[in-house]
Amino acid sequence: MEISLSPEILFTIGSFPVTNSFFWSVILSLFLIGLTLLVRTRMKKIPGVLQNIVEMFLEGAYGFVQSVIGSEKKAKKVFPLVFTMFIFTLFANLATYIPGQAAVDIKTAGGVIPLFRAVMADYSLVFMMTIISVLTTQIIAIIVHGPFGYIGKFINLGGIKDLFKEILKGKFKPALLAQGFLDLFLGIMDVIGELAKVISLSFRLFGNMFAGEVLSAVMLFLFPFFAPLPFMFLGLLTAVVQAFVFSVLTLIFITMASEIEEDKLAEEATI
């Protein structure tokens, strides 16, 4: 039994290696684009079965996005990104359960390798999706808070400024000293928090999918056909939930970045 973290290389175009997970992600993308075009070109006033299903799905998802982010204007902007991530991840995860795909092997220069590999069990793709999500979050935060406000969130000198004001007045308050440095420290910890998002978000999806693959392979190896069944069912649940979680976390990060802090609003309201 072989378990490898990196996907297998099917063939190379020039110096560009085409791996089996890349191959499948392209097929899945083409399938999704084709489906979209099919529904788009056949839009009718009285919807058919396919249009009905797609409309129901889209409306439900849009309503959910709007309920999380709060306003219609923001929801319209963020919906395409989040929903694309969801639908691609969902199809990529569910494609693992097409019967018979695991049995297809092909012969290449590097030996006999499986044609199929779970797309999300390839770290590079998940990593790129995470980078897109985190970068979007940061860009939105910069747009909303302004460049200085954005930096000021991480290097928080407000508390120390208050301390010096008091010192200039001739008073020294140790509580302000502690508060100032605590704010500064927490701001710097936020930088680590932002960086940890990249690791936790990407490894959550990748780890779950990879572990699911390995687990069902091990179970199949131990006792074929019957032992893997409960784990396959669990894997099916994970496939849907993880696709949902990845996109919802992206949505929540974007929502948090696009909101002006409630403390300030509350302060302004009371003043």
Binding site: I199, S200, F203, R204, F210, V245, L249
Partner: peptide, 26 residues
């Protein structure tokens, strides 16, 4: 309907440390 999505999202956040452990193991 309102509780379930947030349950999954918060569960995913609670899962983070487990994922870090998995990363270390890998």
């Amino acid at each position: 309907n309102k509780i379930m999505p947030f349950m999954f999202a918060t569960m995913a956040i609670a899962e983070s440390t487990g994922i870090y452990a998995l990363v270390i193991a890998l």
